[in-house]
Amino acid sequence: MQIGNVKINGILSLGPMAGVTDLPFRLLCKEQGVDLLYTEMVSAKGIMYNNKNTEALISIDEKERPVALQLFGSDPYIMSEMAKKIEERNFDILDINMGCPVPKVVNNGEGSALLKNPSLIEEIVSSIVKAIQKPVTVKIRKGFSKDDCSAVEAAKAAEQGGASAIAVHGRTREQYYAGKADWDIIRRVKQSVSVPVIGNGDIATPQDAERMLSYTGCDGLMIARAARGNPWIFRQIKEYLDNGTIIEKPAINEVIDMILRHAKLQIEWKGEYTGIREMRKHVAWYTAGYPGSSKLRNKVNEIENLDELTFLLETYGEKANAIQ
Rank of each mutant, 00 (worst) to 15 (best):
I259W: 02
D184W: 07
I252P: 09
I247T: 12
I186R: 03
L213R: 05
Y176F: 10
A226P: 06
G229R: 00
V193D: 12
D242I: 01
E210M: 13
P250K: 05
K180C: 06
V168P: 08
P250F: 10
V189I: 15
Q175P: 01
R188S: 14
D208E: 05
L241P: 08
E239Q: 11
R173D: 03
A204I: 10
T172D: 01
Y215Q: 12
K238R: 14
A204F: 04
L221A: 04
G220K: 00
N243P: 00
W183G: 05
E248D: 15
F234K: 07
G199M: 14
A163D: 13
F234C: 08
V193G: 09
I246R: 02
D257A: 15
A227S: 14
K238A: 07
M212Y: 10
D257M: 13
G220N: 05
A163S: 14
V255P: 07
A224R: 02
V255D: 05
A163I: 15
G201S: 01
D208H: 05
R228N: 03
A167E: 04
M222A: 06
T205Y: 05
M222V: 00
I233C: 06
S214C: 03
A163M: 11
E254V: 15
I259M: 10
D208S: 03
N200W: 11
I259S: 06
I166S: 00
I237C: 09
Y240V: 01
T172Y: 01
K190E: 06
P206V: 03
R225F: 12
P231E: 12
I233D: 00
S214F: 06
S192H: 11
G217R: 12
G179M: 07
L241E: 11
G229V: 05
K238E: 09
Y240M: 01
G162R: 14
I246A: 02
Y215T: 10
Y176D: 00
D257G: 13
R173A: 09
R188P: 06
T172P: 02
Q236Y: 07
R235V: 03
S164P: 04
T245G: 04
D184R: 14
V193A: 09
M258A: 15
D219Y: 01
Y240K: 02
E239P: 02
V255K: 08
N253E: 15
I247C: 12
D257Y: 11
Y177W: 07
S192Q: 14
I233K: 01
G170W: 03
T216E: 09
S194V: 11
A224M: 06
Y177D: 05
E239F: 00
V193L: 10
N200L: 10
I256C: 15
K238Q: 12
I256S: 12
G179I: 08
C218S: 07
S214P: 00
I223M: 05
Y176V: 00
T245D: 10
I252T: 07
V195R: 08
